[in-house]
Design a binder for these strands. Structure first.
Length: 566
RNA sequence: GCGCACAUGAUCUAGUGGUUAUGAUACGAGGUUCCCAACCUCGUUACCCGAGUUCGAGUCUCGGUGUGCGCACCA
């Protein structure tokens, strides 16, 4: 209990600081705010950009991944094909007695093996027939069912010519809809990946817990396309001695290296294991505390029906364990769905080791004769004839799909005999998808980095951000703004800001200790102090955030150090 | 979406229908100070929004918005 209060108190102080210092703040606050929407402020905006940069560089370093960017406004048909229109809809009904809204499919689970799969009218019929009691008050008077969609809908174009559309609920569909271009870019050779950083939208019923559940959020997804029959060749050497926390779908949590868990069959697919390992490294590089990271495998009934294996990365913070990354083997589900909806080829070509020699020996129709003879049925007759064995004899009587009989004479058919060499085949690639909730990751970077020292009301706050993600790289502090120290410091400040990738702040107000504290609070990794010695020999004090340690070095050295590590 | 609680400067907060709304911290200006939230002087900033009750509303009522907690929801 006491610990719970401490966690709450810390959380309140942390969110207060984030607001006060312009890291993360409720959006549109002057108009009363809006649930589930947050601003990254002058400090947070930079933090987000740096996290995204680290994320981008990490995956591009693999060499077989490209970055794309797709619109957030997405036509209805795209999300219908992907299954989101159905998947993101809940069929709600309202109890007439107590006004409690319930999901119709959930209540009818006792009356149907899989009510989730029913259409709205089927559900309505079943609800009328079964009339289950209201879970809140026990009444059985239900309103008619209404579809609640968790996607934001909009219209492309004006008036009656407008097309229905949604704001995308995930960025992934962009990688699938551009698959043909990506396949071409990689010169038609698997495996390869495409990724995208961007915004996603979900009209959450009840956003809670600050940054954890948002209506508009930053996400980053990578789709890695593989040949399901090719043997994956991932080098796990770097992870052979790195133990991680694993929570398998069955059995107890345990610690293991990722390659061992793969060998033991806990992780089902080597490419999933590969992305788990790479994700582990990425989160470490972002400054996530590895003791507060675990991989949790989805139970079979928790996985999307098409997923073959799925592991979440959960991070522990002020809100407990929170899913921040999903690494899913999605099979061929998405590409197949778009192929089915559009008729476009969403495939890759695979050569056989040896070309296959195919003996074709069978029958087909002679169009010139069979066409006039069977007219509208000619197509069906052709299909039927081509399915006959080589030893079929004519005339033959065939029963067609619609039950009609067709008598095929010898003159209607032709024998087909040839040898074909088939070099390979088209197949739909499988996809392994690591999907990152950037806002949730940023939250945990902050949560893990935020440290309070001291006790009582006199807490000293330090954010131990990794310098790769620290919003501000350095603070330039003139000990006093006199004797020329102020001028030297402003000049240093400008030179730092002019260096690519370096952002420095200038702070001359308050005592030096107060300024160190201000910098520590938002995680500035180092402070450069211009003092009297600077006037004599041109050196400044470099003060490390985490240790408070001070060293003297020349202004040029300081600039060089910051611009090379940024 | 339902229920309960809450909403006062930048942050945290006091305030039981009646003057100019409390305090701390923070922030700004000046002073002081040769390196870790010191000190002195001065200063800026607030009753979530909208209706209502009342001679009078930060305070009471209703509605909205937001926040927290519980239930439900959570690709």
């Amino acid at each position: 209990m006491v610990e719970g209060q401490n966690v709450m108190g810390r959380l309140e102080r942390l969110t207060g600081m984030l607001r006060r210092r312009g890291v993360i703040l409720p959006a549109f606050e002057i108009h009363g705010g809006a649930k589930g929407l947050y601003d990254f402020g002058p400090v947070g905006g930079r933090l987000r950009a740096k996290v995204q940069d680290v994320w981008r560089d990490h995956w591009l370093s693999q060499g077989d991944v490209v970055e794309i960017s797709c619109p957030t406004v997405t036509p209805f048909a795209v999300l219908e094909a992907s299954g989101h229109v159905a998947e993101f809809s809940d069929f709600m009904t309202v109890c007439q007695a107590c006004n409690e809204a319930s999901r119709a499919d959930t209540m009818l689970e006792a009356h149907h093996p899989n009510p989730d799969a029913l259409s709205m009218s089927e559900l309505q019929a079943l609800l009328d027939e079964a009339s289950p009691p209201c879970p809140a008050c026990g009444a059985t008077e239900w309103s008619s069912i209404a579809a609640e969609n968790l996607m934001f809908d909009t219209v492309i174009g004006a008036g009656s010519s407008g097309r229905a559309a949604f704001l995308r609920p995930e960025t992934a569909q962009g990688m699938f809809t551009t698959y043909p271009a990506i396949y071409r870019h990689f010169r038609e050779r698997l495996p390869f990946g495409a990724m995208q950083l961007g915004r996603g939208y979900r009209n959450e019923i009840s956003p809670r817990q600050g940054m954890i559940r948002l209506r508009e959020f930053n996400m980053a997804e990578l789709e890695y396309f593989i040949d399901p029959e090719a043997e994956a060749s991932h080098d796990f050497t770097p992870w052979r001695s790195t133990s991680v926390h694993l929570v398998p779908a069955e059995g107890d949590p345990f610690q293991s290296t990722i390659p061992d868990a793969l060998d033991n069959g806990v992780i089902l697919h080597p490419t999933v294991a590969w992305y788990m390992a790479r994700t582990h490294d990425l989160l470490h590089a972002l400054g996530i505390d590895l003791d507060k990271l675990r991989f949790r495998q989805h139970a079979r009934d928790e996985m999307a029906h098409y997923a073959l294996d799925c592991w979440d990365v959960e991070l522990h913070g002020s809100y407990g364990w929170v899913e921040c990354v999903g690494i899913a083997h999605r099979g061929c589900y998405d590409l197949e769905a778009h192929e089915r909806a559009t008729g476009q080829r969403m495939r890759a070509w695979r050569n056989y080791a040896e070309p296959k020699i195919v003996e074709i020996d069978g029958w087909t129709t002679d169009g010139a004769k069979a066409g006039p003879a069977f007219r509208a049925l000619a197509g069906q007759v052709k299909a039927k004839v081509e399915s006959l064995p080589a030893d079929a004899a004519f005339p033959a009587s065939l029963i067609l799909e619609n039950g009609e009989e067709a008598v095929v004479e010898p003159e209607h058919v032709r024998r087909v005999q040839r040898t074909e060499s088939v070099a390979g085949e088209w197949f739909i690639p499988h996809v392994v998808e690591p999907a990152f909730g950037i806002d949730r990751i940023i939250w945990h970077i902050i949560d893990h980095a935020y440290q309070e020292a001291g006790d009582g009301d006199d807490l000293y706050v330090r954010m131990h951000l990794h310098h790769d993600v620290a919003p501000i790289d350095a603070a330039v502090l003139p000990l006093f703004e006199k004797d020329g120290m102020g001028e030297i410091a402003s000049d240093l400040h400008l030179r730092l800001c002019a260096s690519r990738g370096v952002l420095a702040v200038y702070d001359a107000s308050g005592s030096i200790g107060r300024r160190y504290a201000r910098a520590d609070e938002i995680g500035v990794p180092c402070c450069l102090t211009v003092d009297h010695t600077t006037l004599e020999d041109g050196t400044v004090t470099w003060r490390e955030r985490d240790t408070g340690e001070q060293t003297r070095l020349s202004i040029d050295e300081a600039i060089h150090r910051l611009s090379t590590r940024a």
